[in-house]
Simulated scan of single mutants.
Amino acid sequence: MTLEIVDFDRLECRCVDHRWGFVEERAADIERHWEERRCANPALYDGSVLLACRVERTTGEDGARILRVAFFETPFSSFLAWREFGWPDEAVYNCFSMPAARARDGAYLLGEMGPSHSFAGQLYFPCGTPDPSDVVSDGRVDLAGSLVRELAEETGLAASDAHASAGWTAIFDRQHVACVKRLDFDAPSHALLASVKAFIAAESAPELADAHMVSSLTALADPRLPAFMVAYLSRALGGADEIPRRAG
């Protein structure tokens, strides 16, 4: 499947009831896989997360470009197995929000996932898989709120201190749907980075192992960056038509 980047004016997300056949059909495999992963990384926690069973692109009556997503609740162990078994159910998606925190000089903030993370060592914008706390009273899933929470928990930065872009950029990469909102901070990259590094150092159990700033296309050859991150940053840093290739 070709990776796509699409701009939207708004997201419309709801939590629905969904019977996931993968969990029923592969229950024993999922349990075995979880025990293996827990033995390798005891910090993993089998809480509930939200995955998407329907992702639709549509246009509103007002002409707005809308990404409409239906989420359902499932254990993290099921999500992890589905992901690491190679996405056996392609009708389900891992849809999540990410803040593209941008410094005044144009550099973007990346978090290096800590050892307790299922993708330890990889580089992302601060983010997390949505969970039931992101479901508000009317059943709506608040991905903007999830973005604000994850940014604060992982970096100590407040989204309210930045200017947020009006819309969203979604990167579709097989079963990933990464919904990115740019946050422009009125601070130079060295100051923004120092603030985040100080926050990480002060935490007793930080979610991030480190933080980095990226400002050039050459930095996107780093193998720790997932393809959807490379795609977004390539366009954001001025290389919309030229995504860097990695050796190997």
Score class of each variant (00 low, 15 high):
L3R: 09
D7S: 13
E12P: 13
E12A: 14
D17E: 15
R19W: 01
V23R: 12
E24L: 04
E25W: 01
A28E: 15
D29W: 03
I30H: 03
I30T: 09
W34C: 06
E35P: 05
R38F: 08
N41P: 11
L44M: 05
D46E: 06
G47C: 09
S48L: 14
V49I: 05
L51T: 00
A52M: 00
R54S: 11
R54M: 03
E56V: 12
R57C: 05
T58P: 08
T59G: 13
G60S: 14
E61F: 10
D62C: 13
G63D: 02
A64C: 11
R65Q: 15
I66P: 12
L67K: 03
L67W: 05
L67T: 11
F71Y: 15
F72W: 04
E73A: 13
E73R: 14
E73F: 13
E73Y: 09
A81W: 10
W82I: 02
E84K: 09
F85S: 13
W87V: 05
W87Q: 09
P88L: 01
D89L: 02
V92K: 00
C95S: 15
M98I: 01
A100S: 10
R102S: 10
D105G: 12
D105R: 07
L109H: 02
G111N: 01
S118K: 10
S118C: 12
A120F: 05
F125K: 00
C127L: 08
G128Q: 08
G128S: 15
P130Q: 08
P130A: 03
P130H: 07
P132S: 05
P132R: 05
V136R: 14
G145R: 11
S146T: 04
S146V: 00
L147K: 00
V148A: 15
V148G: 11
R149V: 03
A152V: 07
H163Q: 14
A164V: 03
T169G: 00
T169Q: 03
A170D: 08
I171E: 01
F172I: 00
F172D: 00
Q175F: 01
H176Q: 11
H176E: 06
H176G: 11
A178K: 01
L183G: 13
F185C: 13
P188F: 08
P188E: 14
L192V: 09
A194W: 09
S195W: 12
K197D: 13
F199W: 14
I200D: 05
A201G: 10
A202T: 07
A202F: 07
A205K: 14
A205V: 09
E207I: 08
E207Q: 15
M213I: 12
S215E: 11
S215K: 12
S215C: 09
L217D: 08
L217A: 07
L217E: 05
L217K: 13
L217N: 09
T218F: 11
A219N: 10
L220P: 14
D222E: 11
P223L: 05
P226A: 02
F228Y: 15
V230S: 02
L233W: 01
S234Q: 05
R235H: 11
A236Q: 10
L237F: 08
G239Q: 07
D241G: 15
D241P: 06
P244I: 00
P244A: 03
